[in-house]
């Protein structure tokens, strides 16, 4: 099962480069031919505009590519089943991609290409958020995210590679309940009461927290997810109570195990 989880994200990397349907206009138009002054002025300035727009579109493509690669790799760091053995090295590879992406996101470009960069960043936050939960049963803080994305530059100063906005953080974190939910359901299957306890405690606290923050979109989906989790836990508790009624010694034995 874990093998398939590791294979899925490969798709992006193997997709061949798309062939452009039209040849790009390159170079300068032939201005030596006889033409009116207005036309010459227009063609000259539009050649400049074309180069500016091309640079912008290319940069946007590169950010999208990086963001997708980060998404694919983040899925390989951990899953609700386990933290993969090579999580540390995968984390290093992701950092390398972030380093590449951060070159495109300097200064005002950070927000300009935020829409393209944010999916990968969110997926990464989700991955290390789950990792943090599995390890410490706590919610990853924005500070921890920023720290995990910080590397030392040439002068040895540790700086974050890119800006993490509050939206990036909250949207990344809002994907956690789904993952923790899966972890919780798997634990019910395995009869791991301790894991179920700590996921539920985590989810309840997260829900309380999320209720504080009012914003639209995917955050609202949380409201639908949490009852689902609580229902599963309810079924489990009801079964346990039923079991206890029929056979109290068996339940006590299971709890000890």
């Amino acid at each position: 099962m874990s093998e398939t989880a590791e294979q899925i994200p490969q798709q992006h990397e193997q997709r061949p480069a798309k062939k452009p349907r039209f040849e790009k206009h390159k170079g300068t138009p032939d201005l030596s031919q006889p033409m009116s002054e207005t036309k010459r002025a227009i063609l000259t300035s539009f050649t400049q505009y074309r180069d500016t727009l091309d640079a912008h579109y290319d940069r946007r493509e590169r950010v999208i590519k990086c963001s997708r690669d980060i998404t694919a790799l983040s899925k390989k760091i951990d899953s609700p089943d386990r933290v993969f053995a090579d999580a540390e090295s995968k984390q290093k590879q992701v950092l390398e991609l972030f380093r590449k992406m951060s070159a495109e996101l300097q200064g005002s470009n950070g927000y300009k290409y935020n829409r393209q960069a944010t999916p990968g960043l969110q997926e990464y936050i989700e991955a290390i958020g789950l990792w943090t939960f599995l390890r410490d049963s706590t919610l990853i803080t924005k500070q921890q995210v920023v720290e995990s994305l910080s590397v030392a530059d040439e002068s040895g100063e540790v700086k974050p590679l890119l800006m993490v906005s509050d939206e990036d953080y909250i949207l990344g974190v809002s994907d956690l309940p789904g993952e923790v939910n899966r972890y919780c359901i798997n634990s019910i299957g395995k009869g791991d009461r301790n894991a179920v306890e700590r996921s539920l405690a985590f989810l309840r606290e997260l829900k309380e927290g999320i209720n504080f923050v009012l914003c639209g979109g995917r955050i609202r989906d949380l409201d639908k997810k949490i009852p689902k989790i609580e229902k599963a836990y309810y079924s489990m508790s009801i079964r346990d109570d039923e079991m206890a009624k029929i056979n109290p010694t068996a339940v006590a034995a299971a709890a000890d195990a």
Binding site: S36, T38, K39, I42, L43, R50, L53, D54, Y57
Partner: peptide
Amino acid sequence: SQFASELYAGFQLLNLK
């Protein structure tokens, strides 16, 4: 018409996405 077609020629240089 003359002006519009000159301007259009300029726009045709752009590689719009």
